[in-house]
Design a protein around this nucleic acid. Structure first.
Lengths: 221, 221
DNA sequence: CCGCCGTCCACTGTATACAGTCCACGAAAG
DNA sequence: CTTTCGTGGACTGTATACAGTGGACGGCGG
């Protein structure tokens, strides 16, 4: 049985641009690339062993995600996020997620519930707290995706990376008082999911606001 | 007095990419490029008399704006916006603008008021209805800009062009029963501005919801 | 010592060149 | 007539080449 004709691979085929994007993104999120440091295309191209073209596209993408900023002439640096930036980020997130909660309350499907429950189980099974916080973001992203609301999802994507940046930063900064332990995250998500299934927009909204507020406390990074 | 050293020009310096972006955008909004039609880089580059590089960047930008979509292999076409797309667009717009209204109610400055009033005066002085609808969008954009909330503005930019696309389309489709006459737009904006100045978040929100609903009636494009 | 000017260099914007891929179309086999 | 296979062309993805610009730096004049 020769499956070579099935074109299974093309779905996951990855261009050098996307490759470069995720590599640079990871380097920023990990702190390897410090906020404010310059990102010369020439330099990055050399390090990633590709030409400037994919690097350019990666930088454009990351600018869109808010991790990179370009000066009036096109020179890129790792964006420096201020306190206000983080506050704005979270107020935006709150608005988007509340909208998602209300939408989903009206249209959630058994399939959605199943997916979300599986994700919560995955969170419960996790030991690593850094990993957990990523799963948490993924859970919220799944809620937004489930709404099938394209503009909402596009907007979410413009802040997602910045949220992960903040998470990584907070983890490094305050390793002792770890945010979002399993004991808090998992039950919170179960309550949220229950509210989303209640069919009541206002219940869903309130549950989401509660969920959001548990994060907001950690804002002063 | 030689001003050649003052570098006044660089502020408005325009790259070929941006040039290409606005030209293609205009062509789509005007209907010259029909939804669904393909956009081969080679072809566009030839027509715009530039190389493929600026065209590529323009297409990436327009994809972000939701006017262009790329298939799994990178071939671009003018995006076909469905009825649901427009509904989602407006619900997104409503959410963002309500958020903006609440924010601005808390922090509006005399300068903001002055700018917005001047824009309303400009609307009052306009005869052309197509022009008026663009001024209307610009007015709402100014409200969002005035919040000084970067993520909010970034999100707005991802839907702005699609809204203008819908406007242009609606204008062509129903030339007789013109939407948004001056008699409706200007007083509506004055009331909205008054609510924004009231200092009350809920008044601002309600006024914005009213403003949004006047648009929504026209949805079945 | 301080400021001004010119040169050089690092870097981007754009063009061109090259390689690979998918699809349409047509020929050959059933 | 239908199906299969092969081939050519139309594109994109990526690399390389070229041109221009602004800033850093050093020398020169005050």
């Amino acid at each position: 049985m020769d499956s070579s004709k099935l074109h299974l691979a093309p779905l996951t085929r990855t261009s050098l641009s996307e490759d470069a994007t995720s590599k640079i993104r990871r380097a920023i999120l990990s702190g390897e690339l410090v906020p404010g440091s310059t990102l010369p295309e020439t330099n990055l191209a050399e390090q990633l062993a590709v030409s400037r073209v994919p690097v350019r596209e990666a930088l454009m993408e990351l600018e869109q995600e808010g991790l990179v900023e370009m000066d009036y002439r096109g020179r890129s640096r790792v964006r420096i996020l201020s306190e206000k930036d983080f506050e704005d980020l979270f107020s935006m997130r709150c608005t988007l997620e509340v909208m998602a909660a209300r939408l989903l309350a009206k249209q959630i499907t058994p399939g959605d519930v199943q997916t979300l429950e599986a994700m919560i189980d995955g969170q419960e099974a996790t030991e690593d707290l850094t990993e957990l916080s990523l799963l948490d973001v993924a859970f919220h992203e799944q809620i937004i995706r489930a709404t099938n609301h394209r503009p909402l999802f596009v907007c979410w994507k413009t802040i997602r990376s910045q949220i992960e940046f903040w998470l990584a930063r907070a983890h490094r900064a305050q390793a002792e008082r770890q945010l979002s332990s399993i004991e808090l995250t998992v039950p919170g998500h179960r309550r949220l999911l229950a509210a989303l299934c209640s069919g009541s927009e206002s219940k869903a909204e309130n549950a989401m606001r509660v969920e959001m507020s548990t994060w907001r406390e950690w804002l002063p990074a």
